[in-house]
Design a protein around this nucleic acid. Structure first.
Lengths: 253, 253
DNA sequence: GTCAACTATATGTCCTGACAAAGAGCAGGG
DNA sequence: CCCTGCTCTTTGTCAGGACATATAGTTGAC
């Protein structure tokens, strides 16, 4: 079966050496755009690395680094002795650590927030274990209802270590927690999540405009910064009728 | 605040050039083991790449490649001008495309399967769109109940394109679908998932030993091979009282 | 004493060059 | 006709060097 024919002619590829953007990244962006716009057809071969490097005036390692980043994103597949080709399937975004606020905003759904509580409380054993602080020591507690297009979507309950962040209620109402963290110079690194389901309590139902007993999607998450400190522990419930987690994931070789 | 002091003395690091395992991978495995066993303490610096390369008799690119793979796994963090240090938090496995069967088995929970249906049916519009086949054309349909420790955990409903796999009912009862695919030479590449929740129907409740209306965790997944062909479309429901998705995820820089 | 500028250090980027190994296709032998 | 072995192509691995740049600590001026 003949492969869908090689491509790789004039694709508008070319790098700008005066730019501060790394060459491999420039190339990666251009290739990604070419795939996105269909100029690099799914299944088409990219042409061998050495020749591509020669045409662009780059070295092979630089070209390889660009291609590798796309392979890591799942956009391309390399096969020794064959070449590198564009993956057929439409890859959307792989799963990343995202905030509900940003997700809703990029989906064009006008997020809004109502703060129910914004206090300091002693840490329960569970919270203390998650955040790595002393049991009974002070931790911030923030409870919010998140709306999308004026409809309640989720009930967000977050615990944060003390003195990490200035948690103004007004700012909490106008933006997302992760955005506030990043703005404070906190570098998010990783998170441990658990997603489940349970029935709504009467109080939850009232806040989310669902009957008591309605199925809810639950998410518990502990987020760490790049120093390994826990910066947030969240226990969230989502209206199953209005929300689902969607994500793409890759097989790691 | 002084950093937890540099380490990097004799860590038992050393590569075997006669081994077929790539040098960078040997080094990566050794470093990972050292972190795992605590010989490389969280927060400790690794010592600069050039010196490390010199001590091991390797070139810097090779050492960098090894370190980079650990950075990608979330185990280490690089800081220009500072060095590379081990992340404090214990990283478990990042989210990967996994099968319930394997997950249960690695958790030591003795998975078992009962096949309810194993037939060929015409594709509904939804299934046809997911698998990329003609509407109404033949597709395999497999319906199973998955047990863990003799307790029902999930109801699995899979659609597969025709002639992809030999779907013997006996084999389906004794292993997982993904394992069968891999054994058939199919290279899994990526999957698109959607996780939600809903109430159990009467029939689902009966099969899963839950009352009707009980909250269930739902997962829809389309899996693609490295050629971009859809190889499976699954619509699964899990008992929320017995199962939750747990995973770790990294911030992509 | 405080702040700015300088310097040392480590990673980030990029180059050239070389050989190894896997896969596909072709040719030859059974 | 099928299978085996060869060869060619292409990616995989590795070396060694050079310069750029961000960060931290130190030094110097005010």
């Amino acid at each position: 079966m003949p492969k869908p024919a090689a491509d790789s002619a004039a694709l508008g590829l070319g790098v700008d050496r005066t730019s501060p953007v790394p060459l491999y990244h420039q190339l990666a962006l251009q290739l990604e755009a070419a795939i996105e716009q269909g100029r690099l057809a799914p299944g088409s071969l990219l042409g061998n690395e050495l020749e591509l490097a020669g045409r662009l005036g780059l070295s092979r390692p630089t070209v390889r680094q660009a291609i590798q980043s796309l392979v890591d994103k799942g956009l391309m597949v390399r096969r020794r002795g064959v070449g590198t080709q564009v993956v057929h399937s439409r890859i959307r975004r792989p799963l990343e650590l995202s905030s509900l606020y940003d997700d809703l905003e990029t989906a064009g759904r006008s997020p809004a927030t109502r703060v129910l509580r914004n206090t300091v409380e002693p840490a329960t054993p569970e919270v203390a274990a998650a955040l790595g602080v002393e049991e009974g020591s002070d931790v911030h507690l923030v409870e919010r209802v998140r709306y999308a297009d004026d409809e309640p979507v989720a009930l967000l309950r977050n615990h944060l270590p003390p003195r990490l962040l200035d948690l103004g209620t007004e700012r909490l109402e106008s933006t997302g927690l992760y955005r506030m963290m990043r703005a404070s110079g906190i570098t998010l690194h990783s998170a441990r999540q658990s997603v489940g389901a349970r029935a709504a309590t009467a109080q939850e139902g009232e806040l989310l405009a669902e009957p008591a007993g309605a199925p809810l999607l639950t998410m518990e998450r502990t987020t760490f910064d790049d120093g390994g400190r826990a910066v947030e522990f969240g226990s969230h419930v989502y209206r199953a009728s209005r929300y689902a987690f969607e994500f793409q994931l890759l097989v790691r070789p």
